[in-house]
Design a protein around this nucleic acid. Structure first.
Lengths: 305, 305
DNA sequence: TCCAAAATGATAGTTCAGCTTACATATTTA
DNA sequence: TAAATATGTAAGCTGAACTATCATTTTGGA
């Protein structure tokens, strides 16, 4: 398309609306401008084409034969454009919120709580995609990621959701009678870990433990690792928010908190990408995390109902 | 159409071109802007839709699924608009030059000379419409009018073509031996006039002659009036440019020049309405009129060949 | 493997297309 | 006949659209 030869789209749009309405004033209302703006566009087009397109007719205007032909085709073109925009907006209005989370977070934090969200917002679908690796939100079309880390990912916005240092935990029976001052006091016990949770490996190494000397059973998902720990099959390290409920219920005991290096779960989003449904979901996440912290501070640490 | 919800047409056009070319730079070239302009438009649209439409792909860009769907529909819309404009321009490019002239000017000045234009410009069709009344150029779709008058018509441009006071003329035999100092010296002779040429009537009355006392034969066209004068059937008053050739050839004699009140034939156009063909024709009219004046001043007044 | 070319990304600054404001004129209706 | 409602026109304003410039990324060829 040689755009050099095509007049201003604003002018063509103004003319089409005026021809369709047979009124400069009505066209102005449709376009949210003054009648003077429409009149100027029309006259500029007539100058460009060296031909009348609209003529005055009483209190309104009428298109000439050439003007009618032009306006009809332009109307088709602008209608197609308007529909294209509407189609995209419609697709976005109802589409589910796509989120990606680490499996550990999904299984141990999110899924036990998501029922509350679903009952509060049955109209909002949330697609939860557990993923072991860091997902490119922009490229893969995700609205939100929940990631564990320091909160600094390039080109993304991040907001801390749960402060969550790692805790070492085990079944009470497994560690009965032991005094635990450091992870070194636990190296003779069996361990269970998720094969893929790099952070688990990293935080253990951060305590000066050589993973090679541990009797570690690697499991394919963090759920399995957690289940094994709950069954007394080994020591595990987990983000605090994952195991808080099991500790409160007495199914696990906290052996020690690992070094806190500013890590936590973050809500990660693409700048500028938002939707009403996403905002509602994020607000619920925020509120739920805050309630968890408040329950933790309450006397006796009553479990969330 | 609710234009509030529709982003900038310039942005939609920039995005469509970038998606089609899979390149911001190529889109920029098509749109005659810089790549930065295209990039800004695309990012603004992505912000508005809260969704990626184009992603970087090596040295180029690729549309996302949503972007492809949008771009395809937009392409259809812009193509329709481009075709509408092209259709109107095509209709204008070849169309004839429509002109309206007084019958007197047509028959006595233009037609004897138009052959030269036709041989010089066989590709340009000129539609000559003789009309007794003043025609609304804009409303009736004329490119040019040749009108006799002072050169001031509302909302129209006018350019003097031939200075043409009226002359009183007659066949030499009709007035042999007469000394003519004023039209009063001719009131006893027969007269011939065009029924419709209001100016002929007006200029005679301007010399103080009461038309009612003249023996006037009114004819249906100025050609007939001129033919009658050439046949010796009466005195006639004609614009000078109409009768100059017959006077030079000796078929008529100039009796006197009537009062010159700044009248002449003018080329009258609608401001802003032009085309290459019209400009060529008007230039030929100008040149032809100038050559006539130059021939008039040459020794012996040699006729135009 | 390195460098140059060609692309995209980002931002500060410029400019004029597009608009508003204001008033004049034309048409229609009560 | 006057008021209401339209179009016509031109001066002036402003922010959308752009350019200029530099940074970064990617790729192809030497």
């Amino acid at each position: 398309m040689d755009w050099h030869d095509i007049p201003s789209l604003a002018a063509l749009r103004a003319f089409e609306a005026a021809a369709r309405h047979e009124s400069l004033s009505a066209a102005a209302r449709e376009l949210n401008v003054t009648h003077a703006a429409v009149a100027q566009h029309v006259r500029a087009l007539e100058q460009d084409f060296a031909e009348d397109l609209l003529i005055r007719q009483g209190r309104g205007v009428a298109a000439t034969a050439a003007g009618r032909a032009l306006a009809e085709q332009l109307g088709d073109g602008f209608q197609t454009i308007a529909e294209a925009v509407a189609d995209l907006r419609d697709r976005n209005a109802d589409r589910p919120v796509n989120i990606t989370v680490t499996p550990g977070f999904a299984g141990s934090w999110l899924m036990p709580r998501i029922g509350e969200f679903w009952s509060k917002h049955p109209e909002i679908q949330v697609n939860i995609n557990p993923s072991c690796s860091v997902v490119d939100l922009r490229q893969e079309g995700f609205d939100l990621g929940v990631r564990y880390g320091a909160g600094s990912w390039p080109k993304l916005d991040a907001e801390l959701l749960t402060e969550a240092a790692y805790w070492a935990v085990a079944h009470p029976d497994l560690v009965a009678g032991r005094a635990v001052r450091s992870l070194h006091d636990l190296t003779d016990l069996p361990w269970v870990m998720d094969s893929y949770e790099r952070e688990q490996h990293r935080v253990v190494e951060g305590e000066g433990i050589d993973l090679a000397v541990l009797d570690v059973t690697l499991l394919n998902t963090n759920e399995l690792a957690l289940s094994a720990a709950l069954a007394g099959l080994g020591v595990t390290v987990q983000p605090r928010s994952i195991v808080e409920r099991d500790i409160r219920s007495g199914q696990l005991v906290k052996l020690m908190a690992l070094r806190d290096n500013g890590l936590g779960y973050h809500m990660v989003t693409v700048p500028g990408r938002s939707s009403p449904n996403l905002r509602i979901f994020m607000a619920w996440l925020r509120r739920t995390a805050r309630e968890d912290r408040e329950n933790e501070k309450a006397p006796g640490g009553a479990g969330a109902s």
